[in-house]
Design a protein around this nucleic acid. Sequence first.
DNA 1: ACTTTTTATTTCATAAATGTATTATCTATT
DNA 2: AATAGATAATACATTTATGAAATAAAAAGT
Lengths: 175, 175
Amino acid sequence: MTKPTPAATLAKSFAPADARLALTAKRFPAFDRKTVTLARLTNFVAKGLANHANRALKHHGLNHTGYAVMVMLFGSIDQTLTPSQLVDATHEKSANITRICDDLLRQGLISREVDSVDRRKVQVRLTTAGEKRITEVLPDVVAVTRNNFALLDTAERLQLDYLLRKVIEGQEQMP
Amino acid sequence: MTKPTPAATLAKSFAPADARLALTAKRFPAFDRKTVTLARLTNFVAKGLANHANRALKHHGLNHTGYAVMVMLFGSIDQTLTPSQLVDATHEKSANITRICDDLLRQGLISREVDSVDRRKVQVRLTTAGEKRITEVLPDVVAVTRNNFALLDTAERLQLDYLLRKVIEGQEQMP
DNA sequence: ACTTTTTATTTCATAAATGTATTATCTATT
DNA sequence: AATAGATAATACATTTATGAAATAAAAAGT
């Protein structure tokens, strides 16, 4: 089981910020330093993930959002999803999905067609070119993604998965 | 100690995406489903945090980046930091810090002055109005931030803090 | 002392993301 | 079958974020 003891020694770059938050907590009793720090940490990890992924994706003419869309399509029946499903799958706002898909369409990586049974819906489908592209890109991105978590052992990864899902569960209950 | 067992039952909204990633992993051996999922989870939590914070901040004329800048200033000696220090503290790109500070300056919440000993540097300082504003805003934002982590008990928060720092440590070692 | 290199910040052009309004279609109720 | 209400996607305006180049000052090397 993971022991949180040596946490303080890790991520040294955090020390100055921690000190500032400590001071703020001192000056401001309402300031819940622990959760604020959790929020900051999450933010930093997410930024790091996006930055590293983007660097790997740039050569391939994609960014991490476009990539996320394509991966979700790749993993779907018929390689087809509606924009709404893409919104759920990526947590991007619908307007952003439209924009991303416009771009993927320009690159010929996806197609769009109106759903024949519900004509409000649009079916976004990975093209052959799109499938080829994702196949080229995926190994790079997966490798980079893995590196982000390289320091965690199997138990820790499981634990992190559990904790993050629990946080999301809590967020979904928020007003 | 935290038991990760019931993780699968939490965050139900994740089920369809999990299924897609499972399929992708099946079709694509190189696809390391576990770390990819960790990346996705982190991303979602960060998005939720930003969205919730932004909603609380909007009334106050701030967004979560501007707020982050002000909190860091509030927690600093003399309530003063250079743009570079703000870059480190927030992980925002320098150009963005400039823009954010322009905005805070327009609102009269900070001041900018050239450092007298190293004239390349700029000292960004919280004004009295800025201090007042952060004092008004902080309780709201802290309350919202806490809610995101409401489902985690003390041990779990500690654990999450530990794990995230370890991830950041790993990210910092990346090329 | 003088040139080169490094560091700090900003500017500018561009990209990415969001909120709100709009259009079109479907569903349910009368 | 007509209408009201809900849902799906997009368009448009605006905000937010980024990369690359420019400017300026300090530090280092010769």
